[in-house]
Amino acid sequence: MSVEKLVEGILSGKRRELARLISLIEDEDAIASEVLSRLYKNTGHAKIIGVTGPPGSGKSTLVTRITTEYRKREQSVGIICVDPSSPFSGGALLGDRIRMQEHSLDDEVFVRSMGTRGHLGGLSRATSDAVRAVDAFGKDVILVETVGAGQSEVEVIEIAHTVIVTDVPGSGDDIQAIKAGIMEIADIFVVNKSDLPGADKKVTEINAMLDTDQKMGTWRPPVILTNGRTGEGITELVDMIEEHFAYLASSGQLEARGLRRSREELEQLMEYKLTRELLSTLRGRPEYENAIREIALRREDPYTVAERLITEFLVKCRE
């Protein structure tokens, strides 16, 4: 499918073209960057919401409920669910759609499941490009579900305006986990499964933890109790998302974040392209392979060799 046809299709709201573009992004096809570069000026309109937390805490259920609420408010919704690929087979079982049945025929909702694969440019690259594609497609709100644990999830979440961290009653251990990492990224905490014993205690614990936090800025993350099964607390949650967005806009953080993200993205892209250029001129050449052998044999050192190769590359570039 041509770049032209993809760009036009996506801008005129054709799901199939959007779906194709996301596949090209996942497959790291060069056409994807061409299409995305053409779409870039049509992006930046969607409100991006990250939902992260342990498996089984109700993320998909909440995403569905939040979608229902946004649909009531006449907003269109894109959903991207990221699940881990098997490190052994590279395959993945993506089951988040099971919870999203009620939106399965709504034209204003687009749902896409992604495996983490072993992405060259990192999971965050593929996910943020997919989000960008959905943004260009014209969705008002984009929800990104990721399993919260490692670094890659934290990276994915950097593209979100508002990050929701989910938790459930019971097991006090995860307070430690929250403290250790996810803490800094949460704009809103959700204690889901309010029907289970210990829900109020969990809310109190998280609040206590937040009250002792030194690093907190001017936004103090609220803790909201929800029931994914009945939908209790969801209106409040969506109101809070809106409030957070308004806060970002009025405090100037929206603009600051936009600048920071653009800088990061530009620098990452340059780094990636430069490295690829450099390596493509080196790899496979006998001198290069030889230098590597010399380093292994301790007859050369990697510091000097790196310095030399880069200087040679730069000199060649200037010619």
Partner: peptide, 24 residues
């Protein structure tokens, strides 16, 4: 090594085709 999207029970043909298209 495949990516499998599972959608649960009681899918109508319309739901199946929509999911197949969105998920490419």
């Amino acid at each position: 090594g495949m990516e499998v999207i599972y959608t649960g029970l009681r899918q109508t043909p319309e739901m199946i085709v929509r999911a197949a298209i969105d998920e490419a």
